[in-house]
């Protein structure tokens, strides 16, 4: 429980850091921290393999891609969350006010639904679960989910081709 609270607080702080940072580089690094703590939380819910995948895919590939783009376009300060010396209320223009109200409303609705629900009991029978091992996941992935697995590979291929095609410089006629 103690570990959960620590990781949850780090994840939340990193998430707030992502959306409040003035420099995109800081946002990307906060996002990395968020992904890393989420990997730790995956281990706490018996998803060890996916924790490893999380680190490899998100921390290894996605964040590096983000940092590449930030470095390419120059990581200057952004002014879209208001100037540094403005008061908080002065920054709170009406779209941001609406966004804040909607976000808090979503949070209250979800929190109320969960806390009044039936999910407060913890299960202890993790042994029947295969411990989230590669073997247990592979047994399901390559039998019941063989077709989605193949489709995922096609999706990745299409994504790769699309990225290469979009990144081409425009042709001079």
């Amino acid at each position: 429980m103690f570990l959960f609270v620590v990781f949850a607080l780090i994840a939340l702080a990193a998430a707030v850091g992502v959306i409040t940072s003035r420099k995109p580089v800081y946002s990307a690094l906060f996002l990395l921290l968020n992904f890393a703590t989420l990997a730790a939380l995956y281990i706490m819910v018996e998803a060890q393999f996916l924790a490893a995948v999380q680190i490899i895919v998100y921390a290894g590939a996605v964040i590096v891609l983000f940092l590449f783009v930030v470095m390419l376009i120059g990581g200057g300060e952004l002014d879209d969350i208001g100037g540094r010396n403005k008061k908080f209320l002065a920054r709170l223009t009406w779209p941001r006010g609406i966004a804040l109200v909607l976000g808090l409303g979503l949070l209250v609705a979800v929190g109320y639904g969960l806390l009044s629900g039936q999910l407060m009991t913890a299960t202890n029978d993790a042994a029947a679960f295969g411990q989230g091992s590669v073997q247990a996941i592979a047994a399901v992935l390559y039998t019941d989910y063989a077709l989605p697995f193949e489709l995922a590979s096609i999706l990745l291929l299409v994504g790769m081709i699309g990225a290469v095609a979009l990144a081409q410089p425009p042709k001079k006629d």
Partner: peptide
């Protein structure tokens, strides 16, 4: 840790992302 705690953390992170 009860499952609902994870779900609430998930909802919080999702809300921050939405914001």
């Amino acid at each position: 840790v009860p499952t609902s705690y994870f779900l609430i953390l998930s909802a919080l992170l999702f809300t921050i992302g939405t914001l």
